[in-house]
C-alpha cells in the first residue's frame, strides 16, 4: 500500500514540466561547480605536488561539491515538499486517501518514500559525475561514499520537515516558504553562533553533515539524522489524524 502511494507520487512528479526544468537547472549548477573546482585543482596541482600529504583530488573537488549540493538542496527541497499534502488538500484529493482503507502512517510513509525516490535520483548524479574523474586518476571511495550517505540522510531530514509543514496548510506556497524559513533558521542558528560549544550547532542538520563531508562517519550524526526525520514523520502522521478529528 505504501508502495502504491509512493509510485503515484513519483509518477506525478515526473509528469510535471516544472520538475524536469528544476532537474535540468540543478544539474547545470552541479556541473558548473564541478568544472570550476576541477579547473582550480588543475591550476594548483603543480604546487600541491611539492607538499607532503597534500589533499587529493577527491578532497579538493568532491567534498566542496557535496557541501554546495547540501546547501542547494536546503533551498530546493521545500519546492518539492510543498505539494505533498497541501496540494492534495487544496485540490480536495485528500478525501480519496482519507476514505481509503489506509492508516495515516501508510499515507505519510508513501508520500515520503515517493519523494525520496525522486531526490535519490537527483543526488545520485553527483557521484556519477565525480566517477568520470576515475578515467584519469584514482579516487578516494571512502570519502566519496561517506559524502553520498551523509547527503542522503540530510535529504531525508529536509524532506520530512518539508512534509510536515506541507501537512499544516492548504496552500503549497505557504508550505514552501514555511519549510524554507525553518531550514534557513536552523542553518543560521548554526553559522551565527561563533563559540564551538554552544548547543545551537547541534540543532542544524547541515552542522551534522560536516563530519560526513570530511569523510568521518559518526554514529552520533547518523542518529541525529534518523531522529530528526522520524520526529517529523510522526508529527505529520499525528497531524493527519487530527485532520479527521478537527476537520
Amino acid at each position: 500500500m505504501i508502495r502504491v502511494i509512493a509510485l503515484r507520487e513519483f509518477r506525478s512528479l515526473l509528469s510535471m514540466p516544472s520538475t524536469w526544468f528544476v532537474l535540468a537547472a540543478i544539474q547545470f549548477i552541479f556541473a558548473w561547480f564541478f568544472l570550476a573546482r576541477l579547473d582550480a585543482f588543475l591550476e594548483i596541482q603543480p604546487q600541491l605536488a611539492q607538499i607532503a600529504n597534500a589533499p587529493g583530488v577527491t578532497a579538493s573537488i568532491a567534498a566542496p561539491l557535496f557541501n554546495v549540493i547540501a546547501l542547494l538542496l536546503m533551498m530546493l527541497i521545500p519546492m518539492f515538499t510543498m505539494r505533498l499534502i497541501a496540494e492534495e488538500r487544496r485540490n480536495q484529493t485528500l478525501a480519496l486517501l482519507l476514505s481509503s482503507p489506509l492508516s495515516s502512517a501508510q499515507i505519510v510513509l508513501g508520500k515520503f518514500l515517493g519523494l525520496m525516490m525522486f531526490l535519490a535520483l537527483l543526488i545520485v548524479t553527483a557521484p556519477l559525475m565525480l566517477y568520470t574523474l576515475q578515467l584519469g586518476t584514482p579516487l578516494d571511495h571512502g570519502l566519496l561514499w561517506s559524502n553520498v550517505i551523509g547527503l542522503f540522510m540530510l535529504t531525508c531530514c529536509y524532506a520530512s520537515l518539508g512534509l510536515y509543514i506541507s501537512s499544516l496548510t492548504a496552500q503549497p506556497i505557504i508550505a514552501a516558504i514555511g519549510a524554507l524559513a525553518a531550514l534557513l533558521g536552523l542553518w543560521l542558528a548554526d553559522i551565527s553562533s561563533n563559540s564551538a560549544e554552544t548547543p545551537w550547532h547541534q540543532f542544524s542538520p547541515l552542522f551534522h553533515f560536516q563530519n560526513f563531508n570530511y569523510g568521518l562517519m559518526d554514529s552520533g550524526d547518523a542518529a541525529y539524522f534518523i531522529l530528526f526525520s522520524t520526529v517529523f514523520l510522526l508529527l505529520t502522521m499525528k497531524r493527519l489524524n487530527n485532520n479527521r478529528i478537527y476537520g
Binding site: 506525478s12 485540490n91 480536495q92 484529493t93 478525501a95 480519496l96 482503507p101 492508516s103
Partner: peptide
C-alpha cells in the same frame, strides 16, 4: 476498525478527487 470498514466504501466527494496530471 477503520481500515477493514473502509474497504467496503466508495466515496465521491463534492469535488471529484482527481489527480489532473494522471
Amino acid at each position: 476498525q477503520p481500515t477493514l470498514a473502509k474497504a467496503h466504501l466508495g466515496y465521491l466527494p463534492e469535488t471529484p478527487p482527481l489527480y489532473r496530471e494522471l
